[in-house]
Design a protein around this nucleic acid. Sequence first.
RNA 1: GGCCCGUUAGUCUAGCGGUCAGGACGUCGGCCUCUCACGCCGAAAACAUGGGUUCAAAUCCCGUACGGGUCACCA
Length: 471
Amino acid sequence: MAPPRVRFAPSPTGYLHIGGARTALFNWLWARRTGGKFVLRIEDTDRERSTQLAVEAIIDGLKWLGLDWDEGPDIGGPHPPYFQTQRLDLYKRYAEKLIAEGKAYACYCTREELDVQRKKAEAEKRQFRYPGTCRDKPYDPSRPHVIRFRVPEHGATSWNDLVKGVISTPHDTLQDEVILRGDGVPLYNFGAVVDDITMEINLVGRGDDHVNNTARQILMYQALGYPVPTFAHFPMILGADKARLSKRHGATSVTAYRDMGYLPEAVLNYLVRLGWSHGDQEIFTRDELVKVFDLKDVGATAGVFNPEKMAWVNHEWLKKLSDEELARKALPFFRKAGLPAEDDAKLRHVCAVARERAKTFGEYVQQFRYFYAPPQLDPKAKAKFLTADNRPVLQTIRDGLAALPALETGALEQIFHGVAAARGVGLGKVAQPVRVALTGGTASPGMYDVIQILGKDEALARLDAALKTIP
RNA sequence: GGCCCGUUAGUCUAGCGGUCAGGACGUCGGCCUCUCACGCCGAAAACAUGGGUUCAAAUCCCGUACGGGUCACCA
């Protein structure tokens, strides 16, 4: 069998959506797995909504995820161009071929006329379908017209969907749909078919929402005299309320997750598990996926996007990175928050303690900004721990620290344990007041780490500041 | 509403006629412990429903309910 040629064909009407990213991922994986080709095509025939900005956003998103294409915009390929609006003559040629063979025809009905009929049908609670008014009218290119595809009136078209099995669509649910607008721009079903034919796409993997387009497209392949590709329809991604995932469910763009401090490996990993599985395995590297991914293992049921699990996956990936990698990747997030972080030993130490405690770089900044900015004193923590009773504890720790030549863990241990022993209390009684003084709150990494990260001067300054708040 | 697709714990899923229905996120409890987190141990939690077929059904068939998709000179 010829190596698969698959494609991702987004319409540039917005950013790269989570759902689109997964569609791209499944196609990409299949191509990489089988040694096939992955083609990127921009379906920009909706001129009202398509923008150059969106094209760039989508390309950015794909690149960030590491989903590289073998043919497409900016790199070209054997079947250019890769923007539909630059292929208009092609659609026209194919449409004329259909007209010449009586498989398509010009329709002179105006939008207004059709709207009237549609309204009437609606009023009568009838299903409106184009009645074939112009089916047998002679072709007069000089009159304003659209081109309609002639659909067989009887019978049904079926195909064996790679993920859903056999699906059949009765022809009487179809209509002679418009394939070319008055201005010569193709409609989705026709444009996609002509492009998939000319780009030699032999496996079409796309979202579930295209199932109802498939029969008409198959009819077009047949009318045009080309082999019908294999189809695979991936289940939808839903929001928590089981409605199709949309903005109101929260962040749905891939780049939003990038900006929140997710790793592309993690986003990919989470997405691939939504609708696909490989035994009990949860964490996959890209290379592993390329080895084991199979379209046959894609499930048929829609899945709910679960941000908590995605965060968990990201955490798993973050935990694998070295302190150096972590620091390098986290740096921009601290900077963006206006914090004076540098790619230095301090940041590496911050990341070392953050690694087990935060799931995204966004959380790194949120949870550990006190390493780079004055602590925000939590009133409840202050009331409980920055008390007159604890003054001697803070003072002793402060003096012990001040006398220390270097902030070695062993030395810090000695100070803290010494104070605890002298007062006959547990370490917690000593550490908590200090923690509040140093970080502003009652939850933080271990005290020795915190002190080492802050450095002697800053630690002393914060202890002094805390002592001043105690009457 | 017509047509199409789907239905295993709150969520993602394994299962492909005989399993104590497995794993993961989340939740709860415990251990560890200077707090938090990590880690480890443990718990609760699912085959939508009614009929068939079969010695045997989460697995096959039909109905019902529920959910989703789609019905444009959008994609």
